[in-house]
Nucleic acid binder design. Structure first.
Lengths: 192, 192
DNA sequence: TTTTTCAACTTGACACTGTAAAGATTGTTT
DNA sequence: AAACAATCTTTACAGTGTCAAGTTGAAAAA
């Protein structure tokens, strides 16, 4: 509705959606620009009207997935007043998102070209991380943690959640389903 | 010395070494079977005498890198009697290995095709993990942790170390150098 | 010694990939 | 109506993995 660029509809957005769909179907290895174009019934060079190269399409797909990702995190803490509980819920949402979409972890963090700056607390940074930080900081405040330790404790917490997601979504690593709860429980313990 | 297959020397091993070298130089994106063959002064189809396809070469490269990886972990605890200290050292070696070779994390865990079974304590599993488990279990014993909690605590510990390595070696994530020590210190705290 | 054998390697081909250049299409602007 | 500009197609090229057929040469068999 925003932009109807041409007689074929809004190809740009359709390419992004088709690209994400292709990753869900064929995985990262089977991904190709020409397949995405074919999925949209356009010629193989049509994407070049909207993206400089394949990496720019992949980046746009990454932004799109990130939006869904942060949206899931947001809804997971909607109406939650207790910041300790909220931090735990965010961690669970973080992990659940990648368990529900196992392809996305590798895609987001190793292919999409996104950049995260862990040093600047207020830079234009990665929304999921910013959300996690805001909530965690409230929690740190509520439990009386000295402000000096905030950023350190935050990174440790996040790396733990991130590491769990990494292990659980790694294609080569097998585990029984119950590990998820084990992780989350330990995550909560770590927070307290 | 073991096997001199043919008049061109032991191509199989040279392909593996050249492949690892190529990843160090051009990164994972620039990797190709034909480049590896060219690096060995051999025709583009020659690798097929030693590997069924490119994935089999990559897997062999993964095994080779894993050997170096576990070797570094082993030497890091050589002569160390204190199991708590040893566990900490293993964690540091784990992280250091990937900081020294930033390409290897993504390669090992997302391209090499290695498989890890977190459920079986005595399966023919991933050597770095097996080493970490053995040492951590000794440490658990020494601090009097109930045996029932061993495997849980182990996975939590490892996912933390793994998550730190993941974040610190991610190309898109920027951080100031000091985070490494912050992580390690917190890791030690978590172990105690 | 001569011959046979056979794994290791080369050559050539194929389908597929990303991408660039040039041309065609069509809505918008002048 | 004419010019424009954005969107899409066609064509082309270098690079990729992989297969099939041919070549080589060292070691085994005669």
């Amino acid at each position: 509705m925003k932009e109807k660029p041409y007689h074929h509809g809004d190809l740009r957005n359709k390419l992004i959606e088709a690209g994400i769909g292709l990753i869900n179907e064929d995985g990262l290895k089977g991904f190709s620009l020409r397949k995405v174009a074919a999925k949209c019934n356009v010629s193989h060079a049509a994407p070049y009207s909207h993206f400089k190269d394949i990496d720019e399409l992949i980046y746009a797909m990454g932004e799109h997935v990130t939006e869904r990702f942060v949206e899931k995190m947001r809804t997971s803490i909607r109406g939650q007043e207790n910041s300790l509980e909220a931090t735990s819920l965010l961690g669970q949402a973080y992990i659940s998102f990648f368990i529900e979409n196992p392809q996305y972890f590798q895609f987001l963090f190793y292919h999409s070209g996104l950049t995260i700056d862990l040093d600047n607390d207020n830079a234009n940074d990665y929304p999921p991380f910013a959300l996690f930080r805001t909530t965690a900081y409230q929690m740190f405040h509520s439990i009386g943690l000295p402000e000096k330790a905030y950023s350190e404790k935050l990174i440790v917490l996040w790396s733990m959640v991130h590491g769990i997601a990494s292990l659980l979504t790694n294609q080569g690593i097998r585990y029984s389903g119950d590990w998820i709860n084990v992780f989350i429980n330990n995550c909560i313990k770590e927070i307290e």
